[in-house]
Every structure is written in C-alpha cells, then in structure tokens.
C-alpha cells in the first residue's frame, strides 16, 4: 500500500531506535494562528484521505473545522441571524479566559454563533473551546463532531487543561435549564449551577468574560414540553413551538431574529488568594456577580432593541 509521507521524513542514516524528525512541530494544543491560507480542494481531500492532518489531544481538528464546518454556519451567522458583535476588545489576545454566556433557544444555536463570533473577531482567530454535557458525547455523530470542532466534556480536568494552555473556553452555566427554557422565561437567567465555572477560572487564574446574547431566546418560542416523550427518547426536554412538531422538519428552522453578542469587561479571578477556588462562599458570590452582570447587560440590550427581527 502506498503511504503518504508528507508529514514525516525519515532520516536516511537514522538508527532503528531513533524516530524520524517531524518536519512540523506537533502541537499538543491548537495553534494560535488561524489557517488563513486557502487550501486547494484537492490538497484538502488528499490530506483527509491519507490522514495527513493534525488533531490536538481533545480531538480538535482545525483543518476540518475551518474548511468544512464553519463556512456554512458563517452564512447563517451573517445572513440569517445578522449577528452584531460588541465588546470584542475584551477578548484577551494571549492567555486563557473563561467566557460565560446565557443559554437559550431550545437548540444550542447560541453556542454555535458565539464560537463564530469569537473566531472571526479575535485578532489571532482563536477558536472558542466549549464545554458540553456528557449527553452530547454519548450521542453518535454529534459527539464525534463536537470533539472534532474543539468541544470537550464539561469537567474540571478538561477545562483546566484548556485554560492553562491559553485557550478561550466557553461555558453555559444554565445548562439544559437554560437552553430548554420556555418562551415566557426569555432573558431571565436560570440558576448558574453550583458555580463550578468560578472555581475552574480561579484555579487556572484566568479572567471570566461575561457574554450576553440577545436574539437567540426567540428563535424557537417553546410554549410546551412533552415530558413523557422526552423521557422515552432520553432527551432533557421535548419542545413544542408554534411550528414544531406541527410542521415537522420545517418547524425546526429557527426564526430569523436579529442577534447581538456582547463580550463584557473581564472579571479577574487571580486577585484573591490561591485557595479561594475551594472557598464555597467566594465561589457562589462570584457566580452571582457574573450572573448579575449578564442579566443587567441583557436587560439593557433588550430595552435598546426596537424589533426582534430588525434589531
């Protein structure tokens, strides 16, 4: 079988116990620089067919993400939701940060759009590395796709590892309670878990960036939840909207609301003493502070907005 050897060139005089020197440094974590250079389609297909590409230890595949996954989503970002980004200067140029946002919309379109907002507005094109529930990684295809695009399990160990290596990590502390909230609860933040995100940021000594998303809460106005059906399918909820399941798959098309994503001023966690991460009082207090900040920002953003669809 012919073997593609673009990545590794064996040294002609190499001893059997010495590895060939890779021509490219193997990155353990995502490269900071975005791969802006457009790759020809044949090169892309060849590298996929010969396995000549790199993934990091979380399974993140920047080549696939940038070439195949992001472009169609960017169309939705620009044309459908017309996302407007403010406060992008609050994203740190170097070093890790924990981006904490409100969650809504029945399907996590907000997470997808935020990851494009971060990637396209960061001066170095850093990818947002999101933390997802275990359920995501149990589901065939979805779990594999989530890993390929840089997502990992919401657990302390993974979050620490990403933050310490200087990544921007995204977290939605409202979890399923947030994404599955009903239309009547729009822009009302749910409980922020047990504040695990604060402990994680404090341990890694990185700032928390409050992120407020307006527009996502109206894309699927959830008016009811068929709980027995959700239980049967093993889902956290089974949504009923004015169009779903009435119109079938058509009902799954999100309403074209006008979005705004705001990145707030970083909240430092490294000023307190190092063992504050274990101080439950501090953790809950800070979680409440972040929650308050996002709620306040959301309230003013919603008040400024003239129309749900035109912004």
């Amino acid at each position: 079988m012919p073997v593609q050897e673009a990545d590794v060139i064996p040294l002609p005089t190499a001893r059997t116990d010495a590895p060939p020197q890779p021509t490219r440094k193997l990155a353990s974590v995502t490269e900071l620089r975005p791969r802006r250079a457009p790759q020809s389609l044949t090169d892309f297909v060849r590298s996929r067919l010969t396995g000549d590409y790199q993934v990091d230890e979380f399974g993140f595949d920047p080549q696939l993400t940038d070439t195949v996954v992001l472009p169609p989503l960017r169309m939705i970002y620009e044309k459908w939701f017309r996302v407007e980004v403010t406060g992008e200067k609050n994203l740190p140029l170097d070093g890790g940060a924990l981006i904490v946002a409100n969650h809504s919309g029945t399907l996590p379109w907000d997470a997808v759009m935020t990851s494009i907002a971060v990637h396209d507005n960061h001066p170095r094109g850093k990818h947002l590395r999101m933390l997802g529930a275990e359920l995501v990684f149990k589901v065939p295809v979805l779990g594999a796709l989530a890993r390929r695009t840089g997502q990992t399990l919401a657990c302390g160990a993974d979050a620490q590892r990403l933050l310490r290596s200087g990544e921007l990590v995204g977290v939605w502390p409202e979890g399923f309670k947030g994404v599955g909230k009903s239309f009547s609860e729009r822009y009302q933040l749910q409980r922020f878990g047990r504040g695990g995100f604060v402990a994680t940021a404090a341990k890694a000594g990185v700032p928390i960036i409050p992120c407020s998303i307006v527009g996502a809460e109206e894309i699927y106005p959830k008016i009811a939840d068929i709980k027995p059906l959700a239980k049967l399918l093993g889902l956290p909820y089974f949504p009923v909207t004015p169009f779903f399941p009435l119109l079938g798959p058509l009902g799954a098309i999100p309403l074209p609301t006008k979005w705004r994503i705001d990145f707030g001023a970083p909240i430092r966690t490294d000023l307190a003493s190092p063992d504050t991460a274990d101080d439950h009082g501090f953790v809950l207090e800070m979680a409440a502070e972040v929650r308050e900040t996002i709620q306040r920002t959301l309230d003013s953003m919603v008040a400024e907005r003239e129309s749900v669809f035109r912004g």
Partner: peptide
C-alpha cells in the same frame, strides 16, 4: 467513555 475527561493523569 463519554463521561471521562479527555486526558487522564
């Protein structure tokens, strides 16, 4: 498994 950390120490 799905619920395990990505990297084990």
């Amino acid at each position: 498994g799905a619920g395990a950390p990505a990297v084990f120490t």
